[in-house]
Design a protein around this nucleic acid. Structure first.
Length: 682
DNA sequence: GAACACGACTCAGAAATTTCTCG
DNA sequence: ACGAGAAATTTCTGAGTCGTGTT
C-alpha cells in the first residue's frame, strides 16, 4: 500500500520561511528545516490521464471550462502571443502581451491542477472507522502577539489618562475595535465584557475602574480606525508584500499530507483572542475569548509522521495518533467549553466522501419515504401519546424541513428551538385562516436565531393532535413533552439504516431542486433564462429550508442602479434600431451595389441584436435579484443539494457548469462533476 | 436504562477580502 | 486607463446534529 513517498517529507517546501518567521515578530514558530525532496509529490497514486469513464459525447465536467479555455486561446492568438518571456519590462504598464501571457499561465495552472487532482472517488473505501493511514502536517498557525499601544494613544477613565497594564490594555482594545458595532450598545454584552475585562486588570486597575460608562476608548478606537483606513489605501507594492506574506503562511501551514496526497486545510489558523460574538440574544456575548497557547493544543497525526514543531519555547498539550477522527489539531474554547478543531478543506477526500455518502443516504430515503409517510400517518392515531407526538413531529420535519431540535442547556445559549424543542408559545392554531382550514401558525427562532414564520395548512389528524398536545399547558411548556431527538432518531434508524431527522432536510431539498428544475427550465431558453430558472429552483429550496439573510445594505441602491442601466440600455436599443432602419434605407436607395453599405447594415443588425441580448440579461438579473432580496442561496447549494442533480441539468441544458458553480464549488463537487452522467436521477 | 456529558462533525450567516464593472 | 463602488468569493467561527460512553 505504501508507496515510495517518504513520510518524512515536509508537506510544503518553503525556502525562505525562516526569514519570514523572523519578520513576524518572532512569534511564529521556528521550523526545523527539513529537506524537502518531493517533486510533484503525491501525484504518484493518481492517474494523470484524464478520465476513464465518460463515453458521453457531451463532456459534462469541464464543459464550461473547456469552452472557456478554447475561447481564451483564440483571443490570445488574435492578440498574437509571444512565448518568450521578456525577463521583465520595467514598465508597470501592462502590454497586451503581458495580459496574454498571464492568461496563458492561468490556463496552464488550471490544467496542472486538474492533472494533480486526487480522484479519490475512484478508489476503494477504507474499512469502517478508519479515516486515514498516514497524516502529516505542520500544526496550526498562531495569531500574532499583542502589540502594545503607541505612546500617543491613551485610555481615559473619568476623563483622566490611565496607563493600563498590557493584559488589560489588550482587552480594552478588543472593545474599542467593536465600538461601531451594535454589540457594544447591548446591556448583556457590556456587562459580560466588563466583568471579564476586570478579571484581566491588576488590583489597582480594578480598584480604579468600576464603571464601563466612564471609560474613554476614543483614542484607541480612532487609532484602530486609522489602521483600517491605512490598510485600505496601501499602495500596490505594499499590498503585494502582504499578499506574499499570506501566501507563505498558506504554503507552510495550509496543507497537510494525507495518504500520499497533499490536501488543503480548511482552517489552519488558531482563532485569535477577542470578544465572544454570539448570535441573537446570547447570554454570553461580550465575554473574553482567551488567547490559545500551544500548551492548549492537541496535535493529531500518524505515528510515522514528523510531529509538528511547537513555537519556540512552547510545547503541545498532547500529541496523539488517532486515525478514527479527521482533525489535525484541537483545543478547548473557554466560553462554552466546547472543542474546536483544525480540519481539512471542503475539497478534500475526507469531506468529499462524507458529503457523497450523505446524498446517498438521502437517495435511499427516496425509495422508502412513501412507507415511512404511511407509517407516521398511521401513528397519528396511536394510543400512545409518545408515538403520536413522534408522528406529528415527523410530519413537520418531513413537510416543513424543520431541524430536529435538540434540547439546550438554559442560560448557556440563545433561546432557539427546532422541531422537538418547540414550545406551546411557538405555534398558534387556526381552525380557519385566509381561506384555509386547520392552519398552524409557526413563529419561533431557529438556528442562529433566524426567525421561522409560516402559516401552514395541515391535515385534520395533525391539527387535532396538536390541540390535544396543547391542553393544560403554559406557553413556556414543551409542545412535545414525551419526545426528544434521541427517541426520534432511534425510531428513524429502525425504519432505514442511517436515517435521522436531518436526512429529511437533505432529501426534501434535493428532490425539490430536481422537480423544480424539471418544471421551470425549457431546453429552448437561452442561457440567462435557464440560469434564472436554476436560481428559482435553488430559491424554492432556500425558502423551504428557511435560509435567510439580512437584505444587503446597498440593496435599494444597487437595484436602482440596475434599473437605470436597463433604462439606458433601452434607449440605446431604440437608437440602434433607428440607425439600422436608416442604414437599410440607405442601402436600398443606393442599391446593393455598394458593399460598404451592406456591411454597415449587417453591423447595425448585429448591434441591435447584441443590445437586445444585454437588455434581456439585465432584466433577468433584476428579477433574480429582487426575488433574492432576503434569501440566501449559498447554504442550500453547498450543503443540501446533491450536486449531481445540478451537473446533470447543466449537461442536459447545455449550460457550462461554471455558470452555476464557482471555482471552490467546483473543487468541492469535483467528484460529482466527474462522475455524473446525463441521465442521473436523484 | 435513561439521563446526561462530551466529542466530532455538518451547517450557518456575517464580515472581510478580492475581483469585476463601469463611468 | 484608472479608480470607485458593487458584486462575488472567501474566511471566520458560532450553532446545530447525532453518536457514544459514563453514571
Amino acid at each position: 500500500m505504501e508507496s515510495a513517498c517518504s513520510p518524512r517529507v515536509s508537506v510544503k517546501r518553503e525556502p525562505e520561511d525562516d526569514e519570514f518567521a523572523a519578520k513576524k515578530k518572532g512569534l511564529k514558530r521556528k521550523r526545523i528545516k527539513d529537506e524537502p525532496m518531493e517533486g510533484p509529490s503525491h501525484s504518484s497514486a493518481t492517474p494523470t490521464t484524464k478520465k476513464k469513464t465518460k463515453q458521453r459525447g457531451q463532456e459534462e465536467e469541464s464543459d464550461g471550462e473547456a469552452q472557456k479555455k478554447k475561447s481564451k486561446k483564440k483571443t490570445e492568438k488574435t492578440v498574437k502571443k509571444e512565448e518568450g518571456e521578456h525577463p521583465n519590462s520595467k514598465k508597470p504598464k501592462k502590454t497586451k502581451e503581458d495580459i496574454a501571457e498571464a492568461r496563458l499561465m492561468k490556463i496552464k495552472k488550471k490544467e496542472e491542477e486538474e492533472q494533480s487532482r486526487w480522484r479519490w472517488w475512484e478508489e476503494e473505501k477504507y474499512e469502517d472507522g478508519v479515516k486515514w493511514k498516514f497524516l502529516e502536517h505542520n500544526g496550526p498557525s498562531f495569531p500574532p502577539e499583542y502589540q502594545p499601544l503607541p505612546d500617543n494613544v491613551h485610555f481615559y477613565y473619568n476623563g483622566k489618562k490611565v496607563k493600563l497594564s498590557l493584559a488589560a490594555e489588550e482587552v480594552a482594545l478588543f472593545f474599542a475595535q467593536m465600538l461601531d458595532h451594535d454589540y457594544t450598545t447591548k446591556k448583556v454584552f457590556r456587562e459580560n465584557y466588563f466583568k471579564d475585562w476586570r478579571k484581566e486588570m491588576t488590583h489597582e486597575e480594578r480598584t480604579l475602574i468600576q464603571d464601563l460608562d466612564k471609560c474613554g476608548f476614543g483614542e484607541i478606537h480612532a487609532m484602530h480606525k486609522a489602521k483600517v483606513e491605512a490598510r485600505k489605501i496601501m499602495t500596490k507594492e505594499e499590498k503585494l508584500v502582504v499578499k506574499e506574506a499570506n501566501k507563505k503562511m498558506v504554503d507552510e501551514y495550509g496543507y497537510c499530507l494525507l495518504d500520499h496526497h497533499k490536501e488543503r486545510i480548511g482552517n489552519f489558523k488558531i482563532e485569535p483572542p477577542g470578544l465572544f460574538r454570539g448570535r441573537g440574544e446570547h447570554p454570553k456575548q461580550g465575554l473574553l475569548k482567551k488567547r490559545i497557547q500551544p500548551e492548549d493544543v492537541i496535535i493529531n497525526c500518524s505515528k510515522e509522521a514528523r510531529v509538528p514543531v511547537p513555537p519556540a519555547g512552547h510545547r503541545w498539550k498532547e500529541v496523539r495518533h488517532d486515525n478514527a477522527v479527521t482533525w489535525l489539531a484541537s483545543w478547548t474554547e473557554n466560553i462554552q467549553g466546547s472543542i474546536k478543531y483544525i480540519m481539512l478543506n471542503a475539497n478534500s477526500k475526507l469531506k468529499g466522501e462524507k458529503d457523497w455518502e450523505k446524498y446517498e443516504v438521502a437517495r435511499k430515503l427516496k425509495s422508502c419515504v412513501d412507507n415511512i409517510r404511511n407509517q407516521y400517518t398511521q401513528d397519528l392515531k396511536s394510543k400512545q401519546m409518545g408515538t403520536r407526538q413522534r408522528a406529528v413531529a415527523l410530519y413537520f420535519i418531513d413537510k416543513l424541513a424543520l431541524r430536529a431540535g435538540n434540547e439546550k442547556e438554559e442560560g448557556e445559549t440563545a433561546d432557539t428551538v427546532g422541531c422537538c424543542s418547540l414550545r406551546v408559545e411557538h405555534i398558534t392554531l387556526h381552525e380557519k385562516l385566509e381561506g384555509n382550514e386547520c392552519v398552524v401558525e409557526f413563529d419561533f427562532l431557529g438556528k442562529d436565531s433566524i426567525r421561522y414564520y409560516n402559516k401552514v395548512p395541515v391535515i385534520r389528524k395533525v391539527f387535532k393532535n396538536l390541540k390535544l398536545f396543547l391542553e393544560n399547558k403554559q406557553p413556556g411548556d414543551d409542545l412535545f413533552d414525551r419526545l426528544n431527538t434521541g427517541m426520534l432518531n432511534k425510531h428513524l434508524s429502525s425504519l432505514m439504516a442511517g436515517l435521522t431527522a436531518k436526512v429529511f432536510r437533505t432529501y426534501n431539498a434535493s428532490i425539490t431542486l430536481q422537480e423544480q428544475l424539471k418544471e421551470l427550465t425549457n431546453k429552448s431558453d437561452n442561457v440567462p433564462e435557464k440560469l434564472l430558472s436554476y436560481n428559482r429552483a435553488n430559491r424554492a429550496v432556500a425558502i423551504l429550508c428557511n435560509h435567510q439573510r439580512a437584505p444587503p445594505k446597498t440593496f435599494d441602491q444597487s437595484m436602482a442602479n440596475l434599473q437605470a442601466k436597463i433604462d439606458a440600455r433601452k434607449e440605446m436599443l431604440s437608437l440602434s434600431k433607428t440607425e439600422l432602419k436608416q442604414a437599410k434605407k440607405e442601402a436600398k436607395t443606393k442599391g446593393s451595389s455598394e458593399p460598404r453599405l451592406q456591411t454597415l447594415v449587417e453591423r447595425k443588425k448585429a448591434a441591435v441584436q447584441r443590445c437586445e441580448e444585454q437588455l434581456l440579461k439585465m432584466e433577468v438579473q433584476a428579477t433574480d435579484r429582487e426575488e433574492n432580496k432576503q434569501i440566501a442561496l449559498g447554504t442550500s447549494k453547498l450543503n443540501y443539494l446533491d450536486p449531481r442533480i445540478s451537473v446533470a441539468w447543466c449537461t442536459n441544458m447545455d449550460v457550462p457548469v461554471d455558470k452555476i458553480y464557482n471555482k471552490s464549488q467546483r473543487d468541492k463537487f469535483a467528484w460529482a462533476i466527474d462522475m455524473t452522467e446525463a441521465d442521473f436521477e436523484f
